[in-house]
Simulated assay, not measured.
Amino acid sequence: MKAVPDLKVIWQSRWGLPIGYSLSSEAIALQLDQLGVDLFHRPTPWHMPAELNQPRLREIAARSLPDDALQVSYDQADLFYTEHRGYRIGYTMLEVNGLPADWIAACNRMDEIWTPSRWGAETFAAAGVYRPIHVMPLGYDPEHFNTQIPAYRLDNRFTFLSIFEWGERKAPELLLRAYCSAFSRNDDVVLILRINNFDRSISVSQQIANLRLPPDSPPIVILYNQYLSRAQLGSLYRSADCFVLATRGEGWGLPILEAMACGLPVIATNWSAQTEFFRAEVGFPVNVRTLVPAEAKCPYYTGWSWAEPDFDHLVWLMRYVYEHPAEARSVGHAAAAEVAQRWTWRHTAERIVARLAELA
Rank of each mutant, 00 (worst) to 15 (best):
P116F: 00
C107E: 01
D155V: 00
S184A: 00
N197C: 15
L174D: 02
V204K: 03
S203P: 00
I202K: 14
R157H: 01
M136D: 09
K170F: 12
I149P: 02
A105I: 06
W103F: 14
P172F: 11
E168N: 15
I195E: 06
F124T: 01
A126L: 08
N186T: 12
F145D: 12
A105K: 13
H144A: 08
L176H: 11
V189F: 03
F158A: 05
A121D: 04
F183C: 01
T123P: 07
S217D: 09
N186R: 15
R194K: 15
F164H: 13
S205P: 02
E122Q: 15
F160Y: 15
L138T: 06
H134M: 11
S184C: 04
G120I: 05
A106S: 14
T115V: 06
F158T: 00
P132Q: 08
D188T: 08
C107G: 04
W114P: 07
W114A: 10
P172Q: 13
A151G: 01
W114G: 06
N108Y: 01
D141K: 10
F158K: 01
L174G: 09
A106L: 01
R131A: 15
P172E: 06
D188G: 02
E168M: 12
Y130D: 15
A125K: 10
R109Q: 15
T147W: 00
S205M: 14
D199Y: 13
L211R: 08
I113W: 03
A209N: 11
I202Q: 07
I113Y: 02
L154A: 09
I195F: 04
R131V: 10
A125F: 00
W103C: 03
L161K: 02
I104D: 00
V135K: 08
Y152T: 11
V221I: 12
T123M: 14
P219L: 05
R169M: 03
E122V: 08
I192E: 01
P150M: 05
Q206A: 14
P137Y: 02
R118G: 11
L193S: 10
Y130L: 10
I192R: 09
C107Q: 02
E173K: 13
S162I: 07
N146F: 07
N210M: 09
A121K: 13
I133H: 03
D102Y: 06
L175C: 06
P116R: 00
V129N: 06
E143N: 10
E173A: 15
V221R: 11
L161V: 04
I192A: 04
G120H: 05
F164C: 06
R118K: 14
Y179E: 02
F145C: 12
S201T: 15
P218E: 00
N156D: 15
D188C: 09
G167T: 11
G120R: 04
G167F: 12
S184E: 02
N146V: 03
T115N: 07
V129C: 12
P150D: 04
A121I: 09
N146Q: 03
S217V: 00
D155C: 00
Q207W: 03
S217Q: 15
H144R: 13
P218R: 04
V129F: 05
E165F: 04
S217H: 07
L154G: 05
V135Y: 07
D216H: 13
L211C: 08
P218C: 03
A171H: 15
N108Q: 01
L138G: 07
P214Q: 06
R185F: 05
L154M: 05
S117W: 07
